[in-house]
């Protein structure tokens, strides 16, 4: 009978281990998508979800440390205050969801968008440069194409590095250049920045 329990123990250990390894592998390669693990339904990150995650992880890790340090290993008593802590966090999360779902604006998903930074930089004539960056939201590709749609200067179409033109006689500063970042995936999604040349 003892040998049967040992065999069953090893079998369960193997199955659980294999299952854990598969789950971790799929998380790591993105098959299990964690990108919105702590996001609200509208796409913004959620502080109450993050709190629940942090507390759950801390209590789970503490539980593990206490169990493995016991000889023999036994399941410890969980104090009521720890349950209260998790209860506060989970209740807060639930109430937060209730408040959010009470208003349609709280659950509308964000539109796919492209956001340039900085939006209004100032660059000097005669070789001044400005590196633009772009943030894409809910687009399948982060690639954008850069261009100068109005005004002087040029921008690298791939990197977003803007270079001011040389000083030209008769052109009085300030001048303005409009930079566009357009999603390579969806041309209707773009953002503009205005450079002030001095």
């Amino acid at each position: 009978m003892a040998s049967v329990s040992v065999v069953a123990g090893w079998l369960i250990c193997g199955i659980v281990g294999l299952l854990g390894a598969i789950i971790l592998w799929k998380m790591a390669d993105g098959t299990i998508n964690l990108s919105r693990l702590i996001s609200e339904p509208n796409g913004d990150a959620s502080i109450s979800r993050l709190q629940l995650l942090v507390f759950t992880f801390v209590v789970a890790l503490s539980l593990f440390l206490v169990i493995v340090s016991g000889k023999p290993a036994t399941f410890p008593v969980i104090p009521a205050t720890v349950l209260s802590l998790l209860g506060i966090s989970a209740s807060s999360y639930l109430v937060s969801k209730g408040i959010q779902f009470s208003n349609p604006a709280g659950v509308e998903d964000r539109e796919p968008q492209v956001k340039i930074a900085p939006v209004n930089p100032t660059v000097r004539f005669g070789g001044g440069v400005q590196q633009f960056t772009v943030d894409t939201v809910r687009l399948s590709s982060t690639a954008v194409t850069w261009s100068v749609v109005a005004g002087p200067g040029r921008v690298d179409a791939q990197t977003g590095l803007y270079q001011a033109p040389p000083v030209t006689a008769g052109v009085a500063p300030p001048q303005y250049a409009t930079i566009k970042a357009e999603s390579a995936h969806d041309a209707s999604k773009f953002d503009l920045a205005v450079v002030t040349l001095i």
């Binding site: 709190q51 206490v66 410890p76 205050t81 209260s84 506060i88 966090s89 807060s92 408040i99």
Partner: peptide, 23 residues
């Protein structure tokens, strides 16, 4: 460690208040 340590009541109060403020 043979059991999980209790969370001090001060912390419970603080976190309860903090969550209430957020909500």
């Amino acid at each position: 460690p043979r059991s999980l340590p209790a969370v001090p009541n001060t912390w419970i109060g603080l976190l309860g208040g903090s969550n209430s403020l957020y909500l």
